Amino acid sequence: MQQQQIDELMSAYDGEVPGASVLVLHNGSAVVHRGYGFADLEKRTLAAPDTNYRLASVTKQFTAASILLLMQDGQLQLDDPISRWFPDLPSATKAITVRHLLSHLSGLIDYEEVIPADMTQQLHDADILKILEGQDRTYFAPGTSYRYSNGGYALLALIVERASGKSFAAFLRARIFQPLRMSNTVAHQEGVSAVPHRAYGYTFENGRWGRTDQSQTSAVLGDGGIYSSIDDLARWDAALYDERLLSDESRELAFTPVTRTEDPRIEYGMGWRITPEEVGGTTLWHSGETRGFRNVIVRYPQQRLTVIVLTNREEPEPYQTARSIAQLFLNE
């Protein structure tokens, strides 16, 4: 019965259209685990549980976890000023700490609004640093307000590199993906790494689906560059209940509200949004939106319930669909 209801909720993704992969984990078991529609319209490749989607901002929980791992290693402290790693950032940013970056309290200028006209190539994390080095201002005094910052997470990826001595992609692979057997998950770098079972992004324009897989910012890794599948994310979700990866202290830091967001019902921890629900208790979740992809992971840890919806299309945003799927299990 639940599968039929889920199929109805996912009906827009079914058929010869850009699709989705859906996972429901309940008490450690995958009770729903399937794909809808196509991962690649041109090759007519069906979406499946092992299809890898560009996670967009769902990536941020992995970036935050990388910083927390380095904290556990003693390689950094959350209250370190970011000038420790970026001495060429202007004076307006000197009060920003690692902790501010993790919870979007930095006040950093939105790099996408100040990309120089002559910078037309696809951007990488190091390019974001160069852009921000030219911005001797912030939106507010660091730590005094909230403003979602993709640039802050690009800087966090660079901090991981400078503190660990590894590239961000290599650190993720060695410290998170390999230990958790997330064998097909990758921080994708064109010409450096490949994405197995790759979904391509699409947008519905002029009466048809057209491929819109990349944008100028798609190569920025720290804020959104990881590709993963529901199969691999099931392993990630399991690791968030115990100390196989992050210590109890680190997970509490990630999952504890630090600030209100632009929506007063939603708070932010470190790489996670936190929302109390009327049914099911507090949720830990994050969405990810980029050109051609819309994704969400919603965790109900008190119920040992997680819903993940990964899609390779511009619209719709799947957060409310994931919540509706969760209600089918919370109301049992």
Rank of each mutant, 00 (worst) to 15 (best):
Q302F: 00
G151C: 13
V32Q: 13
R34S: 08
L55N: 10
R251S: 09
I6H: 14
G151L: 08
Q121T: 12
Y148W: 12
V220A: 13
M71V: 07
L233Y: 13
T311M: 03
E205V: 15
M10G: 00
P116C: 10
A95C: 00
W209C: 03
G269K: 09
T275G: 01
E252A: 13
E289L: 07
V220S: 11
R304N: 06
I6G: 06
L89P: 11
R173F: 09
Q327A: 12
E278A: 15
P316R: 00
D14I: 00
S57E: 05
F293T: 12
Q5H: 11
L156A: 03
R162H: 07
L25R: 09
R299M: 11
F140R: 13
L23S: 11
F204H: 15
E289S: 14
A56Y: 03
G15K: 00
W285N: 10
E113S: 15
M10D: 01
D127H: 15
S106R: 14
E267Q: 15
L25E: 11
N150L: 01
I266E: 03
L156I: 09
L155G: 06
V160N: 03
H104M: 11
Y268I: 00
K166E: 11
D14L: 03
P276I: 05
E315A: 14
L240Y: 09
R208D: 05
T120N: 05
A12H: 10
T59A: 06
S83D: 03
L330D: 05
S250D: 06
T306K: 01
I274R: 07
I6C: 02
P318H: 01
R99P: 06
A117C: 03
R147H: 02
T282W: 02
E161K: 15
A187M: 05
T138R: 06
E317T: 14
S21H: 01
L253C: 02
W209L: 05
Y148V: 08
D50Q: 09
D7W: 10
M119Y: 13
R147E: 00
Q2H: 06
Q121N: 11
R173E: 15
G224P: 07
Y139F: 14
M1V: 06
N150W: 05
A187G: 09
T138Q: 03
N331R: 15
A92C: 12
P276D: 12
S145M: 11
D80P: 12
E314S: 11
L233P: 12
I6Q: 09
K60I: 07
K166Y: 13
L105C: 05
G134H: 08
A163H: 09
K94D: 05
A234M: 09
T212H: 12
N295Y: 07
V17C: 04
D50H: 09
D232L: 04
D14V: 04
L305G: 01
L46Q: 13
L240R: 07
G224H: 00
R299G: 01
Q214R: 15
N331Q: 15
E267R: 15
Q5E: 11
I159A: 10
M182T: 02
L68N: 02
L46T: 04
L158T: 13
I109Q: 10
V296T: 14
A64D: 08
A170N: 04
F168W: 04
R265N: 12
Y36H: 06
A174S: 15
G222I: 03
